[in-house]
Design a protein around this nucleic acid. Structure first.
Length: 579
DNA sequence: AGCACGCCGACT
DNA sequence: GTCGGCGTGCTC
């Protein structure tokens, strides 16, 4: 017998090994075998009859039985193809750590009866309560949470097994096999749980579908939403995507009839107030309305959360709030202060940094930003008697990044202040509006209906704010989709980022030019000019816009670069659907 | 002739 | 990713 094995190496094809007599090896099982003279862990993707002469033998099995079903293998293959990565490195990065000694375990389920079910988008305020009720019924379920804290909360709430890295490896492994053999009906995890086999009929759940944490940098370079959608289609599982503010992609798919989306009636809603930061934010992070809200909320014995978004190095006019944007791409231009330049991150376009605001003629153009530490110090000075904290959820004033709202249950806060909404709105990213919309909506849900959300901004008329104020999603998605369509952004076109790191600037330049010329002649691609990521740097990148089958179009031309283009010290990375 | 280094292909 | 082969070029 011969086993075909894939490893965590950038190899396009599996390698064949002899299966020793007496060793039982199946597809989906991890094994140890010699690769380049060393023992390495690989995944068996096929077992077949054949002459094993000249082949090295499998040394031992790592899992006593398959850790993946046939669907899991197929899904891993699809993820690898979609993300231009190797099958082996993709799959091994999606599995729990290997045990030190082989433990006996039950085999994974194989067959998936039933038929394809339409995925569902749950956006209502009661979506979490409804999920709780839904999962108390029969059937297996996988809940994918945005982080380990959320996974812990949901595991406790649903009395489920935990598959995420927040629990010790042995417990994680046990949970994997408990879920696979049906001993644990519900499994909760993060991205690393996406391939866990479940006995049918299964329900797959993605919490906070819109959140960028579902596609972190690095392999496997694919959004959890897309992996689960593919999985649900392959194994006929039910797919529930939960988010009050779905990604623009999912909203569009719902409109196109590819997702079911029950639209809830508007419910009780807090006031959404904007506070003008003109001339204030430079010296102090709190406007008068926000200061008064903190006082009033503290008097009412409730907490105020102050959200401090990570500031982006964009140029903002302190007079009128104007933020320079690239005329071609519509994204905010980033400042390169040393060179006194404004640069678009997508295209090659650079402009000298203006001395005066092109809109109002004001002189106070500056890149600015407040971080949580500065805000905390400032708030303590202003409110010496209040309990101010960056970690204690019961503090009168709670300060943290946007992710802080994930851990605040609905109605648990008296008020939320977005210290610098403009840091989100003016980020050099076409998803800036979507992020601002999601942040404001999450703030509104976390606040009691009698409370308020204060958004400090120079853009009080932005449609994201108006949509949240009116509790009207349509008011956001409609103009947003129009903007995406006009400039050819997702969901209408797909993006890909190719970046290289050379030993020298000239080498980086040469390598990125080789990548670009490898793509010349591929139809239906828009390849942007390469840009250096820092002044005089050896790091270069370019963006590509293309159709839905973009990974298939790029795989052939870019393969030589991805497989063995580390020579000359040059390193090529390809990121599909960058977030 | 002998050895260090780096590039490059192979890895079953 | 990691290894080893082999060519280059320097040294003894």
């Amino acid at each position: 017998m011969i086993a075909d094995v894939v490893f965590d190496v950038p190899l396009a094809h599996p390698l064949s090994y002899a299966v020793p007599a007496g060793l039982a090896v199946e597809r989906g099982q991890r094994v140890s075998a010699t690769l380049s003279g060393r023992a390495r862990t690989g995944m068996v993707v096929a077992v077949r009859e054949g002459e094993a002469n000249g082949l090295l033998p499998i040394d031992r099995v790592v899992d006593a039985s398959p850790i993946l079903s046939a669907t899991g293998l197929e899904l891993g293959r699809w993820v690898a193809d979609e993300s231009l990565s190797s099958w082996g490195s993709t799959m091994l990065s999606l599995l729990p750590p290997a045990p030190r000694r082989t433990e006996p375990v039950a085999p994974a389920p194989v067959s998936h009866p039933g038929q394809v079910k339409m995925p569902e988008l749950w956006i209502a305020a009661a979506r979490h309560r409804r999920l709780d009720q839904e999962l108390r019924k029969d059937g297996s379920a996988l809940v994918v949470a945005p982080d380990t804290e959320a996974a812990a909360r949901w595991a406790a709430r649903l009395e489920a097994a935990r598959l995420d890295s927040g629990v010790p490896p042995a417990e994680r492994r046990a949970a994997w096999f408990a879920a696979a053999r049906g001993r644990a009906r519900i499994a909760v995890g993060t991205r690393s749980a996406l391939l866990v086999p479940l006995p049918p009929p299964a329900t797959l759940v993605l919490l906070d579908e819109h959140d960028a944490v579902h596609k972190p940098p690095g392999p496997p370079r694919l959004h959890s939403r897309d992996v689960l959608a593919r999985r649900a289609a392959l194994e006929h599982s039910r797919l529930l995507l939960l988010s009050a503010t779905p990604s623009v992609e999912s909203w569009w798919r719902a409109g196109a009839g590819q997702l079911e989306r029950p639209d809830p009636e508007p419910g009780p809603w807090p006031r959404i107030v904007t506070a003008d930061t003109r001339g204030i934010l430079r010296n102090h992070p709190l406007t008068l309305p926000l200061t008064r809200t903190i006082e009033a909320t503290a008097r009412a014995r409730r907490s105020t959360a102050l959200i401090v978004p990570r500031s982006a190095p964009a140029l903002v006019c302190g007079e009128c709030g104007h933020v320079p944007r690239c005329p071609d791409c519509g994204v905010t231009q980033a400042t390169a202060r040393a060179e006194r330049l404004l640069r678009c991150r997508l295209c090659v376009r650079t402009e000298p940094m203006p001395d005066r605001c092109p809109t109002c003629g004001g002189h106070r153009l500056a890149p600015f930003g407040w971080d949580a530490e500065r805000v905390e110090a400032s708030v303590r000075r202003r409110f010496p008697k209040l309990d101010v904290s960056r970690s204690d959820p019961r503090a009168a004033v709670l300060i943290g990044p946007p992710a802080l709202l994930r851990s605040c249950p609905p109605g648990s806060l008296g008020a939320v202040g977005i210290v610098a909404l403009d840091a989100v709105l003016s980020a050099p990213d076409f998803r800036a509006g979507e992020r601002a919309f999601a942040l404001l909506w999450a703030a509104a849900e976390a606040v009691v209906p009698s409370g308020r959300v204060i958004a400090q901004t120079l853009h009080p008329d932005h449609y994201a704010i108006a949509a949240v104020r009116g509790q009207s999603r349509q008011e956001f998605y409609e103009p947003e989709l129009a903007f995406r369509a006009e400039l050819g952004y997702p969901p209408f076109r797909r993006l890909c980022l190719v970046s290289v790191r050379g030993a020298t600037e000239a080498q980086g330049r040469r390598l990125i030019a080789e990548c670009a010329s490898a793509l010349a002649g591929v139809p239906d691609l828009m390849v942007y000019p390469a840009v250096a990521r820092a002044a005089g740097a050896a790091c270069w990148q370019f963006a590509i816009k293309g159709p839905a089958e973009l990974p298939r179009l790029l795989a052939g031309p870019l393969r030589p670069f991805l497989e063995r283009r580390r020579r000359q010290g040059g390193m090529v990375e390809v990121e599909m659907d960058p977030v």
